[in-house]
Nucleic acid binder design. Structure first.
Length: 201
DNA sequence: GTACTGATACTCT
DNA sequence: GAGTATCAGTACT
């Protein structure tokens, strides 16, 4: 699959500066682009989750502006990367106005460009297993804590989200309760592309 | 095919 | 010191 990144548009701050669930829904079908050691890795976002703040017990920002959650209060369009379960990094995009906490967890992408590099980073031969989960995704894309606070809207940073010009309103996006959490399960804040093999289980 | 377990280190109380 | 926005491997059916 050939994709010319020059023809794509970088998502701007205004895209992220609104309700977190709206951003989560609209990020489905967008293109995550990673520049790494001169190589380009890219994938279509097929699964996201929305995390709010004080009224969302599953959110890191629920207990206020702690050291870790501080970035969720920051500028929209910033990458929030954090470490979990002793081994895995998670990639989020900060949403809402500054000083309003919110972030979208990017849970899974469908690999498009640089799959060879991703296979090297992941110990699997199955392309469906390359980035079909938040921990797998960051591993395949070489994302770690150094990417925390990166500006996703800046062309100069090596981590961006582009508009892939896929008609997102035509996509069949389903919602469900969020995964892997114990509190706040009742809301359908997980969004994913229906019938897509690269969504996590 | 599904179910259960252990690995592992960081953040917050 | 406890809990965690997970994954891969093993042990089942």
């Amino acid at each position: 699959m050939n994709v010319d990144l020059d023809k794509k548009h970088l998502l701007e701050v205004d895209f992220y500066r609104r309700d977190t669930a709206v951003v989560a829904r609209l990020l489905i079908g967008k293109l995550l682009v990673r520049r790494l050691e001169g190589k380009i890795l890219s994938g279509i976002i097929v699964e996201t989750e929305a995390y709010y703040g004080f009224d969302d017990p599953a959110s890191h920002a629920f207990s206020g502006m702690t050291k870790r959650a501080k970035i969720m209060f920051g500028r929209p369009g910033t990458a929030y990367v954090y470490f979990c379960y002793g081994m895995y990094y998670m990639l989020n995009a900060v949403t809402e106005e500054e000083n309003t906490p919110g972030a979208v967890l990017i849970r899974a992408v469908q690999p498009v460009i640089g799959t060879e590099e991703m296979f090297k980073r992941r110990k699997t031969k199955d392309i469906k297993n390359l980035a079909s989960g938040p921990g797998k995704l960051t591993s395949a894309f070489g994302i770690d804590i150094n990417d925390n606070g990166r500006d996703l809207t800046d062309k100069g940073s090596n981590l961006n989200i582009y508009d892939a010009f896929i008609k997102t309103d035509k996509l069949e996006v389903a919602s469900s309760p969020r995964i892997g959490i114990t509190a706040g399960v009742e809301k359908n804040l997980r969004f994913y592309l229906l019938y897509n093999d690269y969504v996590s289980k």
